[in-house]
Protein backbone atom coordinates (compact mmCIF):
# COMPACT_ATOMS: atom_id res chain seq x y z
CA UNK A 1 0.00 0.00 0.00
CA UNK A 2 1.15 3.48 -0.82
CA UNK A 3 2.11 5.62 2.15
CA UNK A 4 -0.13 8.58 2.87
CA UNK A 5 1.17 12.06 2.05
CA UNK A 6 0.35 14.96 4.36
CA UNK A 7 0.90 18.49 3.08
CA UNK A 8 0.69 21.69 5.12
CA UNK A 9 -0.39 24.38 2.66
CA UNK A 10 -0.57 28.18 2.72
CA UNK A 11 -2.66 30.63 0.69
CA UNK A 12 -2.48 34.42 1.12
CA UNK A 13 -2.73 35.84 -2.39
CA UNK A 14 -5.49 38.35 -1.71
CA UNK A 15 -7.61 39.01 1.39
CA UNK A 16 -7.84 35.56 2.94
CA UNK A 17 -5.17 34.05 5.17
CA UNK A 18 -5.58 30.31 4.93
CA UNK A 19 -3.62 27.29 6.16
CA UNK A 20 -4.67 23.69 5.57
CA UNK A 21 -3.56 20.12 6.07
CA UNK A 22 -4.50 17.88 3.13
CA UNK A 23 -3.98 14.13 2.89
CA UNK A 24 -3.00 12.66 -0.49
CA UNK A 25 -4.34 15.75 -2.27
CA UNK A 26 -7.87 14.43 -1.67
CA UNK A 27 -8.83 14.57 1.96
CA UNK A 28 -9.09 17.83 3.91
CA UNK A 29 -7.91 17.33 7.48
CA UNK A 30 -8.20 21.04 8.17
CA UNK A 31 -8.76 24.19 6.14
CA UNK A 32 -8.55 27.33 8.29
CA UNK A 33 -9.67 30.51 6.53
CA UNK A 34 -9.37 33.98 8.08
CA UNK A 35 -11.14 36.47 5.86
CA UNK A 36 -10.56 40.23 5.86
CA UNK A 37 -13.77 41.14 4.03
CA UNK A 38 -15.10 43.26 6.90
CA UNK A 39 -11.95 45.34 6.90
CA UNK A 40 -11.88 46.04 3.16
CA UNK A 41 -15.61 46.72 3.06
CA UNK A 42 -14.74 50.00 4.79
CA UNK A 43 -12.95 51.04 1.62
CA UNK A 44 -15.21 49.47 -1.01
CA UNK A 45 -12.58 47.01 -2.20
CA UNK A 46 -9.34 45.29 -1.25
CA UNK A 47 -6.59 47.71 -0.19
CA UNK A 48 -3.26 45.90 -0.72
CA UNK A 49 -1.32 47.48 2.18
CA UNK A 50 -4.17 46.78 4.61
CA UNK A 51 -4.36 43.19 3.33
CA UNK A 52 -0.64 42.59 3.89
CA UNK A 53 -0.88 43.91 7.43
CA UNK A 54 -3.77 41.61 8.28
CA UNK A 55 -1.91 38.58 6.89
CA UNK A 56 0.96 39.20 9.35
CA UNK A 57 -1.56 39.39 12.20
CA UNK A 58 -3.17 36.09 11.30
CA UNK A 59 -0.57 33.76 9.89
CA UNK A 60 0.86 31.92 12.93
CA UNK A 61 -2.53 31.56 14.54
CA UNK A 62 -3.85 29.94 11.35
CA UNK A 63 -0.93 27.47 11.32
CA UNK A 64 -1.68 26.52 14.90
CA UNK A 65 -5.39 25.99 14.23
CA UNK A 66 -4.70 23.99 11.07
CA UNK A 67 -2.33 21.59 12.85
CA UNK A 68 -4.61 21.25 15.87
CA UNK A 69 -7.75 20.62 13.86
CA UNK A 70 -5.96 18.05 11.71
CA UNK A 71 -4.50 16.50 14.88
CA UNK A 72 -1.04 16.28 13.36
CA UNK A 73 2.44 17.42 14.37
CA UNK A 74 5.33 18.55 12.18
CA UNK A 75 6.71 15.01 12.28
CA UNK A 76 3.62 13.76 10.47
CA UNK A 77 4.05 16.20 7.58
CA UNK A 78 5.66 15.33 4.24
CA UNK A 79 5.86 18.78 2.67
CA UNK A 80 4.93 22.45 2.93
CA UNK A 81 3.20 24.14 0.00
CA UNK A 82 2.44 27.77 -0.74
CA UNK A 83 0.78 29.96 -3.37
CA UNK A 84 3.49 32.06 -5.06
CA UNK A 85 1.25 33.78 -7.62
CA UNK A 86 -0.75 35.28 -9.13
CA UNK A 87 -2.01 37.79 -6.58
CA UNK A 88 -1.09 40.88 -4.60
CA UNK A 89 2.65 40.87 -4.07
CA UNK A 90 2.56 42.11 -0.47
CA UNK A 91 -0.07 39.53 0.43
CA UNK A 92 1.66 36.64 -1.36
CA UNK A 93 4.91 37.41 0.46
CA UNK A 94 3.48 36.74 3.92
CA UNK A 95 2.34 33.22 3.05
CA UNK A 96 5.59 32.61 1.19
CA UNK A 97 7.82 33.74 4.07
CA UNK A 98 5.79 31.78 6.64
CA UNK A 99 5.79 28.62 4.49
CA UNK A 100 9.52 28.86 3.77
CA UNK A 101 10.19 29.36 7.48
CA UNK A 102 8.19 26.28 8.49
CA UNK A 103 9.86 24.20 5.76
CA UNK A 104 13.29 25.42 6.84
CA UNK A 105 12.66 24.96 10.57
CA UNK A 106 11.40 21.39 10.19
CA UNK A 107 13.49 20.32 7.23
CA UNK A 108 10.50 19.69 5.00
CA UNK A 109 10.39 19.88 1.20
CA UNK A 110 8.85 23.10 -0.10
CA UNK A 111 6.40 23.28 -3.00
CA UNK A 112 5.47 26.51 -4.77
CA UNK A 113 2.01 26.36 -6.29
CA UNK A 114 0.04 28.37 -8.82
CA UNK A 115 -3.11 29.89 -7.35
CA UNK A 116 -5.10 29.29 -10.55
CA UNK A 117 -4.08 25.65 -10.63
CA UNK A 118 -5.16 25.47 -7.00
CA UNK A 119 -8.64 26.73 -7.85
CA UNK A 120 -9.01 24.10 -10.57
CA UNK A 121 -7.76 21.33 -8.30
CA UNK A 122 -10.26 22.22 -5.59
CA UNK A 123 -12.36 19.82 -7.68
CA UNK A 124 -9.96 17.03 -6.73
CA UNK A 125 -11.16 17.36 -3.15
CA UNK A 126 -14.71 16.38 -4.14
CA UNK A 127 -14.38 14.19 -7.25
CA UNK A 128 -12.08 11.73 -9.00
CA UNK A 129 -10.70 13.65 -11.94
CA UNK A 130 -10.39 11.96 -15.34
CA UNK A 131 -7.98 13.39 -17.87
CA UNK A 132 -8.33 15.34 -20.01
CA UNK A 133 -10.92 17.56 -18.34
CA UNK A 134 -12.11 21.10 -18.96
CA UNK A 135 -12.10 23.87 -16.38
CA UNK A 136 -13.93 27.17 -16.32
CA UNK A 137 -12.14 29.40 -13.83
CA UNK A 138 -14.27 32.36 -12.80
CA UNK A 139 -13.32 34.75 -10.00
CA UNK A 140 -12.69 38.37 -9.08
CA UNK A 141 -9.33 38.23 -10.79
CA UNK A 142 -9.75 35.63 -13.53
CA UNK A 143 -12.00 34.35 -16.28
CA UNK A 144 -10.31 31.50 -18.11
CA UNK A 145 -11.11 28.34 -19.97
CA UNK A 146 -8.41 25.79 -19.24
CA UNK A 147 -7.91 22.32 -20.67
CA UNK A 148 -6.18 20.05 -18.19
CA UNK A 149 -4.54 17.36 -20.33
CA UNK A 150 -2.82 15.39 -17.60
CA UNK A 151 -2.12 15.87 -13.87
CA UNK A 152 -0.73 19.39 -13.51
CA UNK A 153 -0.62 20.08 -17.28
CA UNK A 154 -2.67 23.12 -18.19
CA UNK A 155 -3.50 24.74 -21.50
CA UNK A 156 -5.30 28.08 -21.46
CA UNK A 157 -7.85 28.08 -24.29
CA UNK A 158 -9.58 31.36 -23.49
CA UNK A 159 -9.05 34.38 -21.28
CA UNK A 160 -10.69 37.71 -20.59
CA UNK A 161 -9.54 40.69 -22.63
CA UNK A 162 -10.54 43.21 -19.98
CA UNK A 163 -12.36 42.76 -16.67
CA UNK A 164 -12.63 39.47 -14.85
CA UNK A 165 -16.22 38.36 -14.41
CA UNK A 166 -16.16 38.79 -10.61
CA UNK A 167 -14.73 42.27 -11.07
CA UNK A 168 -17.65 43.16 -13.35
CA UNK A 169 -20.07 42.00 -10.63
CA UNK A 170 -18.37 44.26 -8.09
CA UNK A 171 -18.43 47.26 -10.43
CA UNK A 172 -22.12 47.01 -11.32
CA UNK A 173 -22.82 46.15 -7.67
CA UNK A 174 -21.43 49.53 -6.68
CA UNK A 175 -23.93 51.19 -9.06
CA UNK A 176 -26.74 49.23 -7.40
CA UNK A 177 -25.52 50.34 -3.98
CA UNK A 178 -24.21 46.93 -3.00
CA UNK A 179 -21.00 46.76 -0.99
CA UNK A 180 -18.05 44.71 -2.19
CA UNK A 181 -18.06 41.74 -2.80
CA UNK A 182 -21.30 42.08 -4.72
CA UNK A 183 -21.58 38.69 -6.43
CA UNK A 184 -23.77 36.91 -3.93
CA UNK A 185 -26.35 39.70 -3.61
CA UNK A 186 -26.55 40.33 -7.37
CA UNK A 187 -27.10 36.59 -7.83
CA UNK A 188 -29.96 36.65 -5.29
CA UNK A 189 -31.56 39.74 -6.88
CA UNK A 190 -31.20 38.22 -10.34
CA UNK A 191 -33.24 35.23 -9.21
CA UNK A 192 -36.13 37.60 -8.39
CA UNK A 193 -35.94 39.75 -11.52
CA UNK A 194 -36.36 39.39 -15.28
CA UNK A 195 -33.89 39.92 -18.10
CA UNK A 196 -35.65 42.90 -19.72
CA UNK A 197 -32.81 45.28 -20.60
CA UNK A 198 -31.12 43.13 -23.23
CA UNK A 199 -27.53 44.12 -22.48
CA UNK A 200 -24.92 43.21 -25.13
CA UNK A 201 -23.39 39.73 -25.19
CA UNK A 202 -19.85 40.64 -26.23
CA UNK A 203 -17.94 38.36 -28.57
CA UNK A 204 -20.45 35.52 -28.58
CA UNK A 205 -20.48 35.62 -32.38
CA UNK A 206 -16.71 35.42 -32.57
CA UNK A 207 -15.14 32.06 -33.10
CA UNK A 208 -12.62 32.31 -30.30
CA UNK A 209 -12.74 31.38 -26.62
CA UNK A 210 -11.98 34.79 -25.15
CA UNK A 211 -14.22 36.93 -22.97
CA UNK A 212 -14.97 40.61 -22.61
CA UNK A 213 -17.08 42.16 -19.87
CA UNK A 214 -16.22 45.86 -20.02
CA UNK A 215 -18.82 46.61 -22.73
CA UNK A 216 -21.53 44.92 -20.67
CA UNK A 217 -20.45 46.85 -17.60
CA UNK A 218 -20.56 50.16 -19.53
CA UNK A 219 -24.03 49.53 -21.00
CA UNK A 220 -25.27 48.69 -17.55
CA UNK A 221 -23.86 51.88 -16.04
CA UNK A 222 -25.12 54.00 -18.97
CA UNK A 223 -28.60 52.57 -18.66
CA UNK A 224 -28.75 53.39 -14.94
CA UNK A 225 -27.35 56.90 -15.45
CA UNK A 226 -29.81 57.60 -18.24
CA UNK A 227 -32.69 56.52 -16.02
CA UNK A 228 -31.38 58.78 -13.24
CA UNK A 229 -31.33 61.75 -15.60
CA UNK A 230 -34.90 61.29 -16.79
CA UNK A 231 -36.09 60.27 -13.30
CA UNK A 232 -37.11 56.85 -14.50
CA UNK A 233 -37.44 54.20 -11.79
CA UNK A 234 -35.72 50.95 -12.75
CA UNK A 235 -36.22 47.67 -10.94
CA UNK A 236 -32.92 46.71 -9.32
CA UNK A 237 -33.89 43.06 -9.51
CA UNK A 238 -34.48 43.37 -13.25
CA UNK A 239 -31.17 45.16 -13.67
CA UNK A 240 -29.40 42.37 -11.79
CA UNK A 241 -31.25 39.69 -13.78
CA UNK A 242 -30.38 41.40 -17.07
CA UNK A 243 -26.72 41.72 -16.14
CA UNK A 244 -26.49 38.14 -14.93
CA UNK A 245 -28.41 36.95 -17.99
CA UNK A 246 -25.78 38.47 -20.25
CA UNK A 247 -22.91 37.09 -18.14
CA UNK A 248 -24.35 33.57 -18.20
CA UNK A 249 -24.97 33.70 -21.96
CA UNK A 250 -21.36 34.74 -22.56
CA UNK A 251 -19.89 32.12 -20.21
CA UNK A 252 -22.13 29.38 -21.56
CA UNK A 253 -21.46 30.27 -25.20
CA UNK A 254 -17.69 30.14 -24.78
CA UNK A 255 -17.42 27.09 -22.57
CA UNK A 256 -19.59 24.97 -24.89
CA UNK A 257 -17.59 26.19 -27.88
CA UNK A 258 -14.49 24.91 -26.06
CA UNK A 259 -16.17 21.63 -25.21
CA UNK A 260 -17.11 21.12 -28.83
CA UNK A 261 -13.49 21.50 -29.88
CA UNK A 262 -12.24 19.32 -27.02
CA UNK A 263 -14.85 16.79 -25.92
CA UNK A 264 -14.14 15.66 -22.36
CA UNK A 265 -15.86 13.64 -19.66
CA UNK A 266 -15.74 16.32 -16.95
CA UNK A 267 -16.26 20.05 -16.67
CA UNK A 268 -14.92 21.72 -13.53
CA UNK A 269 -16.18 25.17 -12.60
CA UNK A 270 -13.97 26.82 -9.99
CA UNK A 271 -13.18 30.18 -8.39
CA UNK A 272 -15.29 32.60 -6.37
CA UNK A 273 -17.94 33.07 -9.09
CA UNK A 274 -18.48 29.30 -9.16
CA UNK A 275 -20.53 29.95 -6.02
CA UNK A 276 -23.11 31.75 -8.23
CA UNK A 277 -26.39 29.81 -8.11
CA UNK A 278 -27.53 31.16 -11.48
CA UNK A 279 -24.36 29.83 -13.11
CA UNK A 280 -24.73 26.43 -11.45
CA UNK A 281 -28.32 26.16 -12.65
CA UNK A 282 -27.55 27.38 -16.16
CA UNK A 283 -24.68 24.99 -16.90
CA UNK A 284 -26.65 22.05 -15.53
CA UNK A 285 -29.56 22.84 -17.87
CA UNK A 286 -27.27 23.47 -20.85
CA UNK A 287 -25.61 20.08 -20.47
CA UNK A 288 -29.01 18.43 -20.27
CA UNK A 289 -30.30 20.31 -23.32
CA UNK A 290 -27.28 19.30 -25.34
CA UNK A 291 -27.53 15.70 -24.19
CA UNK A 292 -23.89 15.65 -23.20
CA UNK A 293 -22.53 12.70 -21.29
CA UNK A 294 -20.39 14.89 -19.12
CA UNK A 295 -19.98 15.25 -15.37
CA UNK A 296 -20.35 18.81 -14.09
CA UNK A 297 -18.18 19.42 -11.01
CA UNK A 298 -18.80 22.44 -8.82
CA UNK A 299 -16.69 22.48 -5.65
CA UNK A 300 -18.71 23.22 -2.51
CA UNK A 301 -19.04 26.93 -1.67
CA UNK A 302 -16.27 26.87 0.95
CA UNK A 303 -13.80 25.63 -1.67
CA UNK A 304 -14.84 28.16 -4.35
CA UNK A 305 -13.30 31.15 -2.57
CA UNK A 306 -9.59 31.35 -1.82
CA UNK A 307 -8.49 28.62 0.56
CA UNK A 308 -5.35 26.63 1.32
CA UNK A 309 -6.87 23.16 0.87
CA UNK A 310 -6.96 23.71 -2.89
CA UNK A 311 -3.23 24.50 -2.74
CA UNK A 312 -2.71 21.23 -0.88
CA UNK A 313 -4.56 19.47 -3.72
CA UNK A 314 -2.40 20.82 -6.57
CA UNK A 315 0.74 20.52 -4.42
CA UNK A 316 0.19 16.76 -4.14
CA UNK A 317 0.64 16.44 -7.90
CA UNK A 318 3.84 18.46 -7.70
CA UNK A 319 4.95 16.31 -4.75
CA UNK A 320 4.46 13.14 -6.79
CA UNK A 321 6.53 14.69 -9.59
CA UNK A 322 9.17 15.79 -7.04
CA UNK A 323 8.67 19.34 -8.24
CA UNK A 324 10.25 21.01 -5.21
CA UNK A 325 11.33 24.60 -4.66
CA UNK A 326 14.23 26.03 -2.66
CA UNK A 327 14.26 28.73 0.01
CA UNK A 328 14.71 31.47 -2.58
CA UNK A 329 11.11 31.29 -3.77
CA UNK A 330 9.72 34.74 -4.46
CA UNK A 331 6.24 36.04 -5.24
CA UNK A 332 5.20 36.19 -8.89
CA UNK A 333 2.18 38.55 -8.90
CA UNK A 334 1.33 38.04 -12.60
CA UNK A 335 1.97 34.30 -12.81
CA UNK A 336 -0.08 32.42 -15.40
CA UNK A 337 -0.08 28.81 -16.56
Amino acid sequence: MKKDTLILSFESSCDETSVAVVKNGKEILSNIIATQIKSHQRFGGVVPEVASRHHVEEVTHCIELALNEAKVTYDDLDAVAVTYGPGLVGSLLIGIMAAKTVAFAHNLPLIKSNHLAGHIYSANLVADLEYPFMALLVSGGHTEIVLVRAPGEFETLGDTRDDAVGEAYDKIGRVLGINYPAGKQVDEMAAKGNDVFDFPRAMVQEDNLDFSFSGLKSSFINRVHHADQVHEELSKDDLAASFQGAVLDILSNKIFRALKQHPVKQLVVAGGVAANQGLRQRLKEDIKKRNLDMELIFPPLRLCGDNAAMIGAIAQIQYDKKDFADLQVNADPSLDF
Binding site: E49, S52, R53, V56, V59, T60, I63, E64, Y74, G90, L93, I94, M97, A98, K100, T101, V102, A105, H106
Partner: peptide, 19 residues
Protein backbone atom coordinates in the same frame (compact mmCIF):
# COMPACT_ATOMS: atom_id res chain seq x y z
CA UNK B 1 10.03 49.86 4.55
CA UNK B 2 6.61 48.29 5.14
CA UNK B 3 7.43 45.27 2.98
CA UNK B 4 10.90 44.96 4.48
CA UNK B 5 9.76 44.89 8.10
CA UNK B 6 6.93 42.51 7.26
CA UNK B 7 9.38 40.03 5.75
CA UNK B 8 11.61 40.01 8.83
CA UNK B 9 8.73 40.01 11.31
CA UNK B 10 6.90 37.19 9.51
CA UNK B 11 10.01 35.01 9.48
CA UNK B 12 10.79 35.86 13.11
CA UNK B 13 7.33 35.19 14.49
CA UNK B 14 6.93 32.01 12.43
CA UNK B 15 10.31 30.71 13.63
CA UNK B 16 9.48 31.54 17.24
CA UNK B 17 6.03 29.97 16.92
CA UNK B 18 6.98 26.83 15.05
CA UNK B 19 10.08 26.01 17.13
Amino acid sequence: SYTGVRIAVTVAKTLAFTL
